[in-house]
Write a protein that binds this DNA or RNA. Structure first.
Length: 221
DNA sequence: CCACTGATTTACT
DNA sequence: GTAAATCAGTGGA
């Protein structure tokens, strides 16, 4: 199974459910961590009020406007990194946010990075997933490589640094669930955009949470 | 279990 | 100036 990633060009909304159950492996400095994806969200560029690309290209979202098969990584809330896979044709700014997964390889490294015990919460939530994988500053724009990483599935080890995706489906798995996106403010977070997808009966799937009500931050008197 | 709060920085208005 | 595709901790039921 070589991994043909041309399916990503179909766009995030079509691709998101196909990513469920696939395996993402990140190799950094000789350490590999793998997750089996259980929860994702699609973002559809300038036609999607919930997307970072809704108001057009900026320095931050530039990678989203590039070709499919690259990684869009953004920093938010002053401390968290989140990871997307860019989909669609170049210029459409479509992407899929990777929200949760089950750690299937490199458990010790994932536990060390997270500073949390092994268990279903280790990579449950987009920031936890990115942290477990070692994704952060400098990974935005990285290329996604097809197929299992070297060292997996009987391949010889000694993988160079890289991000691999294997096992993407060509058809949506029956029983796949969907609903409104988590933490998205405004109309993009409503039921008109049920673009969050997850697998049933997976403990790593994060609980749904509506956008946080605006909390007063300055001048508390 | 649930509700609420602080953390902490960037990008954009 | 302010909101942000979040998370960990606290306190209460």
């Amino acid at each position: 199974m070589t991994g043909n990633l041309t399916v990503l060009e179909r766009g995030g909304l079509r691709v998101a459910p196909l990513l469920l159950g696939s395996t993402l492996t990140v190799v950094r400095g000789g350490t590999a961590v793998s997750v089996r994806l259980t929860e994702v969200e699609a973002y559809e560029g300038q036609r999607d009020p919930g997307s970072h690309a809704y108001r057009g290209p900026t320095a931050r979202n530039a990678t989203m406007f590039g070709p499919a098969g690259h990684v869009y990584v953004y920093f938010t809330y002053g401390m968290h990194w989140c990871m997307n896979i860019v989909c669609g044709t170049e210029g459409t700014s479509s992407a899929v946010l990777l929200r949760a997964g089950e750690v299937t390889g490199g458990l010790d490294a994932a536990v060390a990075r997270r500073g949390a015990p092994a268990g279903p919460r280790l990579a449950s939530g987009p920031a936890r997933l990115a942290q477990a994988l070692g994704i952060g500053a400098g990974d935005d724009g990285s290329v996604l490589l097809p197929g299992p990483a070297p060292g997996q599935d009987g391949l010889p080890p000694q993988a160079p640094d890289g991000i691999w995706l294997s096992g993407i489906r060509s058809r949506r798995r029956p029983g796949t669930l969907s609903g409104p996106r988590t933490g998205v403010a405004g109309p993009g977070g409503g039921p008109e955009y049920p673009w969050r997808f997850w697998l049933p009966d997976e403990p790593s799937v994060s609980p749904y949470r509506p956008a946080a009500p605006r909390r007063r931050r300055t001048s508390r008197l």
